[in-house]
């Protein structure tokens, strides 16, 4: 009886050891990139936002892929780390998520086709020289403004705060606004702590504030300030991500991160099969409209049936209480 138990225990231990060894081997293979990989997916960091496009990319692409996550390391730079992580691999293309990953990939593999996504204001950091293209995060401004007008019929003047390096966004916004009879009141900041002052300079003259994905402007502190102030000043706060709407913004028109991964897979295929024909950086396909009905109510906006039907999601008013 005792021996039988020992045998069973021994078998279990052997099974456990074999499983552990297998997992370790798989893990090592994954880490050093011994697998024969067609595409390296490079993430700028271990952010949850990078998972949907990476997953969609893998599903849409027929090629083998390995994944490398850049992390803060003091002993070597990003490109060195990337080279080492993919030392046994000859990538046919790189899919970079974020500006940091794109820059590192271009340095590490200068001749390899590169497709990027999730890079805010990509033109500021990423050069499209060589076989480089990508999917921008920013939606076409004209499409956004049409949706803004549909939700807020009385919209005339839109406030826009950007960092001084983001002139392209402003030019596009002005062009799109003039087509729709809108006016852009633009303020420039050089540092995130200037955003509150920039808002105060325009708040009495605007119907809405459009928060673009500008990393200098969008900090936690600035969002909290702008969200509260807009609500109490009667200014519609227009964001670009569902999370910001959940946290108090009036609405967002945001790209689908998953769709961006699928788009990137098509671009990678195109670059590999025809390296001499580099397509331009694409706008993201599809967008999700999310409206916060609680904020709409506070602003006195009437969300009619058409609006609700148009929205992909309406965040309902919080019930009374805590």
């Amino acid at each position: 009886m005792i021996r039988s138990n020992w045998n069973k225990r021994g078998q279990r231990l052997a099974l456990l050891a074999a499983t552990t060894a297998l997992l370790m081997a798989a893990s090592m293979a994954f880490t050093v990139g011994t697998a024969v990989a067609g595409v390296i997916i490079v993430k700028s960091d271990d952010l949850p936002q990078y998972t949907p496009p990476a997953t969609a990319f893998r599903q849409a692409s027929k090629r083998e892929s390995i994944e490398v996550v850049l992390r803060s390391r003091l002993d070597q730079g990003d490109s060195e780390f990337l080279k080492q992580a993919a030392s046994t691999t000859r990538p046919s293309a790189v899919f970079a998520l974020g500006s940091r990953a794109a820059i590192a990939a271009r340095e590490a593999f200068p001749e390899t086709p590169l497709v990027f996504a999730m890079a805010l204001g990509w033109s500021r950091n990423i050069s499209t020289d060589g076989a480089t293209t990508g999917v921008s995060v920013e939606l076409p401004t004209a499409d956004l403004f049409v949706r803004f007008k549909l939700i807020i019929p009385g919209l005339h003047r839109i406030g826009l705060i950007t960092s001084d390096s983001d002139s392209r966004t402003v030019d596009e916004a002005r062009a799109a606004a003039s087509e729709l009879g809108l006016e852009i009141l633009h303020e420039t900041v050089r540092h995130h702590d200037e955003v509150a002052g920039a808002y105060r300079r325009i708040r009495s003259r605007i119907d809405a504030l459009w928060m673009v994905p500008d990393p200098v402007v969008v900090t936690r502190e600035n969002f909290d300030y702008l969200s509260t102030r807009c609500r109490n000043d009667g200014v519609a706060f227009l964001a670009f991500s569902e999370n910001f709407v959940k946290a108090g913004a009036l609405l967002s028109v945001a790209p689908s991160y998953s769709t961006m991964g699928s788009q990137a897979a098509l671009l990678v295929e195109q670059l590999i099969t025809d390296p001499g024909n580099v397509p331009p950086v694409q706008s993201p396909l599809g967008a999700k409209l999310v409206v916060n009905a609680d904020t709409a109510k506070a602003l006195g906006l009437d969300l009619n049936a058409t609006t609700i039907h148009m929205a992909d999601r309406v965040i309902t008013p919080t019930r009374e209480g805590f």
Binding site: Q49, V218, N243, F244
Partner: peptide, 11 residues
């Protein structure tokens, strides 16, 4: 940009 995405996910 990384800070921004962290703000977006933590907001």
């Amino acid at each position: 940009e990384l800070d921004f995405f962290k703000v977006e996910s933590d907001i």
